[in-house]
C-alpha cells in the first residue's frame, strides 16, 4: 500500500505555498512580461523576425521563459528555504518515498508554471492577436518544459547549500541560458561560435518547440526539439528520484 494520499498532501502543501505568496510567485512575473512586451514593442516596433511581427515572435518566447522560471523556482526555493528553516526534516520524517517527494514537488512546480504561463498568454492577447498553430504540441511542450525545469529546480534545491546559490543560479545560469536560448531574438541572428554554443543550451529546444507550436516557425526542426525535450525529461527524472531516495543532501543547514 503506497501512501499516495500522503504524496498528494505534499503536492497540496507546495501548491498552497505559492498561492499564499501569489504576488511574488505569479503576479510579478506576469508584470515583468508585460513590461518586456511594452518595451520591446516600442523598441523594435514594426520589425519582422522570422517572417512575423516581432511581438508575435517574442510572445511564445516569453510564455516559455515564464514556464521555465516558474517551474524552476517553485521547488528550488521551497527546498532551500526548508533547509534553512529546518522544516526539511518534514519530508525526511514523512512516510513518503523519493519518487513521491519528487512527483509532489514537480507537480506543484508544473501547476505554478502552467497557471502563470497561461495568465501570461491571456495578457499577451490584450496586446496582439496570437494564433496557436499546433495546439496539441503547445500543450505537450508546456508539460515537457514545466516538468523538466521543475525537476531541475528540485535537483538544484537538493544540492543547494547556501541562499546565495539560488541567486547565483538565476543570475549566472538561468538568465544567460534564456538569452542564448532565443527568447528575445532568433538564435540564427547570433554570430559564429555563439550559434554553436546555443545548440548546447537545452533551453533552446524547449523554446524553439514552443515557438513552433505557436507561430509555426522553427530554428531547430521541431521533431528534433521534441525529441530533445522528451529525452531531457527521460534522463532527468530518474536522476531526481535517485537523489531524493538517497536523501543525503536533504539536511538542515
Amino acid at each position: 500500500m503506497a501512501n499516495w494520499y500522503g504524496a498528494y498532501n505534499l503536492f497540496r502543501r507546495e501548491t498552497t505555498r505559492f498561492r499564499k505568496i501569489i504576488i511574488d510567485t505569479t503576479v510579478s512575473p506576469i508584470i515583468s512580461n508585460v513590461l518586456y512586451l511594452i518595451i520591446f514593442n516600442v523598441a523594435v516596433s514594426g520589425r519582422q523576425v522570422q517572417g512575423v511581427d516581432y511581438i508575435k515572435f517574442l510572445a511564445p518566447g516569453l510564455i516559455t521563459l515564464t514556464l521555465i522560471n516558474s517551474a524552476f523556482s517553485n521547488p528550488s526555493f521551497a527546498l532551500v528555504i526548508a533547509k534553512f528553516s529546518g522544516s526539511i526534516s518534514d519530508i525526511l520524517i514523512a512516510p513518503l518515498t523519493g519518487t513521491q517527494i519528487v512527483l509532489a514537488y514537480v507537480g506543484a512546480a508544473m501547476v505554478r508554471a502552467l497557471v502563470t504561463a497561461f495568465a501570461t498568454l491571456l495578457v499577451i492577447l490584450l496586446f496582439t492577436h496570437l494564433n496557436v498553430e499546433h495546439i496539441g504540441l503547445a500543450i505537450l511542450g508546456a508539460f515537457l518544459t514545466s516538468f523538466f525545469f521543475g525537476t531541475l529546480g528540485a535537483i538544484f534545491g537538493y544540492f543547494a547549500k547556501q541562499f546565495d546559490s539560488m541567486t547565483m543560479m538565476t543570475t549566472f545560469i538561468m538568465t544567460p541560458m534564456s538569452f542564448l536560448g532565443g527568447v528575445f531574438y532568433p538564435v540564427s541572428a547570433l554570430k559564429g561560435i555563439w550559434q554553436t554554443v546555443s545548440r548546447f543550451n537545452p533551453m533552446l529546444y524547449f523554446i524553439d518547440l514552443m515557438r513552433y507550436s505557436f507561430i509555426d516557425k522553427e530554428f531547430i526542426p521541431h521533431n528534433i526539439s521534441l525529441t530533445v525535450a522528451i529525452l531531457a525529461n527521460v534522463i532527468i527524472f530518474p536522476l531526481a528520484i535517485y537523489l531524493f531516495t538517497k536523501g543525503k543532501r536533504l539536511t538542515v543547514l
Binding site: 501512501n3 502543501r13 520524517i93 538542515v252
Partner: peptide, 29 residues
C-alpha cells in the same frame, strides 16, 4: 507508525499553525 519530534526547532515561513498540522497529518494519510 512513527511520530517524531526532532531536536532542532523548526520554523515554517508561510504557513499557519493549522496549515502546518493539516499538511503534516495529510502526509500520514
Amino acid at each position: 507508525l512513527l511520530g517524531v519530534v526532532p531536536q532542532e526547532v523548526v520554523s515554517e515561513p508561510v504557513f499557519t499553525v493549522f496549515e502546518v498540522l493539516d499538511f503534516f497529518a495529510g502526509f500520514y494519510g
